[in-house]
Nucleic acid binder design. Structure first.
Length: 343
DNA sequence: AGGCATGATTGGAC
DNA sequence: GTCCAATCATGCCT
């Protein structure tokens, strides 16, 4: 007997029960033993429709009678088996879907930003890096840093409280549906496997809602981060001493104003700025000097004299011979290099 | 407010 | 990767 035939037989049997024989096992036996013709499917549908016209008490009584019927367990298991084969087997395999790559991306990002996972000052590395790149004073960067962390903590808090709400709602709803299905399983064929499947469906639905929450949280973090990183554009002029150190190096190496990596590191250390800021400064300085040597002449002379005096002092300390001629020699050399290099 | 100074960024060449 | 050149964006001075 194929599934379809068995199902029809099952329905026919129930149809017979629904019509008149519920509560009267003998009648069923009589029908079966006498081999009465199967009722038309139209009759069965009519009977089902007629149930809606019944009063609640009548329906309850019928339900009770049905539950007590001796054929019920057998019919129930047949229907479960048919459902298992026709419906669950079709969907079963495909529903084992792999983890969504988008959710994985969102999870990774939230973890990296310190929104999900253990709280350990997430994003502070980014904040520190941005603060360093901004080249602001330690006070400024620490203010911005703490502001960033406070806002991130706020996002984190909202995210976790919403997540908790979703999880609670999901668990409540799952329990509710499970209870409902268990209750219904007394009157219609619902196998435990089907209940499990329903739970999985609910979890998937809630997980898609969770994804929206994760997406919004990621967006909020990105906005916060971009705002924070935009602070880089809030240019701060280097302090006077730093500019002086850089200019001294520039004008004393005018013949080749390209500091080595080591020299850049040394200058960065002296000036309290980053190596890339030193590189930027020299890049800007070279191009601006080259474009308008005349404008920088006075500055160049000033630093040349300063360098010369410093060198002379060092020399004097060494040889006790501090002659003005030394200054003149250094200055001459400077002017010579200056014009040779850039003219 | 406007103009200049200056640090940062970007795109192309090497 | 560095460097140059152009450009942007902001700071600062008048």
């Amino acid at each position: 007997m194929d599934d379809q035939t068995r199902m029809m037989t099952g329905l026919t049997g129930l149809g017979g029960l629904a019509q008149a024989d519920v509560g009267d096992p003998d009648s069923v036996r009589k029908q079966q033993s006498l081999g009465q013709p199967q009722q038309d499917i139209g009759d069965i549908l009519q009977q089902i429709m007629a149930i809606t016209d019944e009063s609640l008490d009548e329906a309850q009584a019928r339900k009770h009678a049905l539950n007590c019927h001796r054929m019920k367990p057998a019919l129930f298991s047949v229907l479960c088996e048919i459902k298992e084969k026709t419906v669950l087997s079709i969907r079963g395999v495909q529903e084992e879907d792999p983890p969504d790559p988008q959710i994985m991306r969102l999870d990774n990002m939230l973890l990296a930003e310190g929104v999900s996972g253990p709280e350990k000052g997430g994003g502070s590395a980014a904040a520190a890096a941005a603060a360093a790149a901004a080249g602001g004073s330690p006070t400024d960067s620490s203010i911005e840093h703490s502001d960033y962390r406070a806002k991130l903590a706020q996002i984190r808090q909202i995210y976790h409280s919403e997540l908790e709400k979703y999880e609670q709602a999901c668990s409540e709803f799952t329990n509710h549906v499970m209870n409902l299905l268990r209750e219904q399983s007394r009157t219609r064929p619902i196998s435990p496997k089907e209940i499990e499947r329903m739970v999985a469906i609910i979890h998937r639905k809630f997980s898609s809602i969770q994804m929206q929450l994760k997406q919004s949280t990621c967006e909020a973090v990105m906005i916060l981060r971009s705002r924070f990183l935009d602070a880089r554009r809030k240019r701060r002029n280097f302090n006077k001493q730093a500019t002086e150190v850089l200019n001294e190096y520039f004008y004393s190496h005018l013949s080749n104003p390209y500091p080595s990596e080591e020299a850049k590191e040394e200058l960065a250390k002296k000036c309290g700025i980053t190596v890339s800021q030193v590189s930027n400064w020299f890049g800007n300085k070279r191009i601006r000097y080259k474009k308008n040597i005349g404008k920088f002449q006075e500055e160049a002379n000033l630093y040349a004299v300063k360098t010369a005096v410093d060198a002379a002092n060092v020399s004097a300390q060494a040889s006790q011979a501090n002659s003005p001629a030394t200054c003149c020699t250094f200055y001459s050399c400077f002017v010579f290099f200056n014009y040779m290099f850039y003219m």
